[in-house]
Amino acid sequence: MLVLTAIAVVRMRSLFAIAMLSGVFSLLSALLFVTLDAVDVAFTEAAVGAGISTVLVLGTLALTSRYEKPTNRSPALPLFVVIVTGAALIYGTLDMPNFGSPDAPAQTHVGPDYLEGSVHEIDIPNVVTSILASYRGYDTLGETAVVFTAGIGVLLLISGLSGRRRRDDEEESEET
């Protein structure tokens, strides 16, 4: 399903349909996250991917254009690059532990420590919250700062500049 949606995004030319399909893709991946036990992540993905990101893409489309122009570039070179990279990635996964195996390296060191320590040290049922806010508080502080910076960047780029844009247009029309 996910692959089909992704391929549909490649083939589509209407950007409106692409925005909708990316929302569909997000919802499908949220379902996948639920089956992989990551309920918090699924929750976020559904709210962010299907909600806000679709609204933002549609907002951009309203400010730009609705259709993609067909390009005359040949897809051969990108396809070659992609296939080589993909082959390298798949080669890299050959040494990975089996899916869901309890003795994988990821399951044997920090993960169980957090699970056990969280009971006595934090006393909060949702381990994801306790790691997010307490064990890895520095990380989350950094992430919040990144969100903050991105917000400032968007404000600097596209707010309060509409007056300047109109003046630019007038200058252009005078020149021509």
């Binding site: 609204v55 907002g59 309203a62 400010l63 969100v147 917000g151 968007v154 707010s159 509409s162």
Partner: peptide
């Protein structure tokens, strides 16, 4: 922070004159 950033981004996009 997340609420304010998301709302601010929405305001920034929505306040442009649409084409």
């Amino acid at each position: 922070t997340v609420t304010a950033v998301m709302v601010a981004i929405y305001y920034a996009f929505a306040s442009r004159p649409p084409r």
